[in-house]
Write a protein that binds this DNA or RNA. Structure first.
Lengths: 129, 129
DNA sequence: GTGCAGGTTCAACATATGTTGAAGTCAAGT
DNA sequence: ACTTGACTTCAACATATGTTGAACCTGCAC
């Protein structure tokens, strides 16, 4: 059943920054843009669960693969705090599907250019030369 | 030998815009940033060779796959005006290599997360729980 | 209970990637 | 030669992705 809450350990902005390898300002930026979620202490300080650093590491790589912060936030939207392996698996599947689609598009265009003989008149008809 | 120049047809900003599916302002932007090259008429108007629209179409897809305009310009730097198939093939090879590397990194991180059992402490050691 | 490292917000700055508008010039058809 | 649509440059604006600094507040260790 695994209904027990895991370790209630939380992390400050600075800790998440170190753990994820980005600047504290970036951690705040990701929170305001929905890539990670925070609760607040009585004194208004952010506290993150242990998935935060992980989300950021994935987000950075997803950005390198062409996804915007908005797209990444949307992708992570289904993820609960301290997500289950199943939740992560679903996110991973959708993420990989998306980036592979983009790579497929790129490759198709390149292949069309090369097989096109001379140059890429892909979407164009060229009736009168 | 094929030393004969191909068709000396050139294209205006507006023509390249239509052929590549971007706005004229974007065509000028790509020229100032080295994605495409222009010569100038006596009256200072840009004239592009027929590879320009093609470069832009590839550039848009490469951007979707995570490359910056600067990176794309660097990739196209070796390309001559009206590039040979060999030149295009070399650019295509390097481009695909780069984007596939990024996808590999993304997948590796995701796999590490899932096989990690619980969550991603990838680069971190966690001596005291 | 005090000190201070590290937290808060907010505004300004910075870079990337473009778009828009003004003011003026070019090219191509008639 | 004129007209007119498309071109030129330049500055301002817009959005995305952050960083930096000022001014102030918290949490924790002593």
């Amino acid at each position: 059943m695994t209904l027990l809450a895991g370790s209630p350990r939380t992390f400050s902005v600075g800790e998440v920054a170190v753990d994820s390898g980005v600047a504290p300002s970036a951690v705040r930026f990701y929170e305001t843009h929905g890539v990670i979620n925070a609760v607040r202490t009585a004194g208004n300080q952010r506290r993150f669960d242990e998935s935060a650093a992980c989300r950021i590491q994935v987000a950075k790589l997803a950005q390198r693969a062409g996804l915007s912060v908005r797209e990444i936030a949307a992708l992570f939207a289904d993820l609960s705090a301290d997500p289950t392996p199943d939740e992560w698996a679903d996110v991973a599947r959708r993420l990989v599907t998306e980036v592979e689609e983009r790579v497929r598009n790129l490759k198709a265009q390149l292949a069309a250019m090369e097989s096109g003989g001379r140059l890429c008149e892909i979407g164009r008809d060229d009736p009168a030369r």
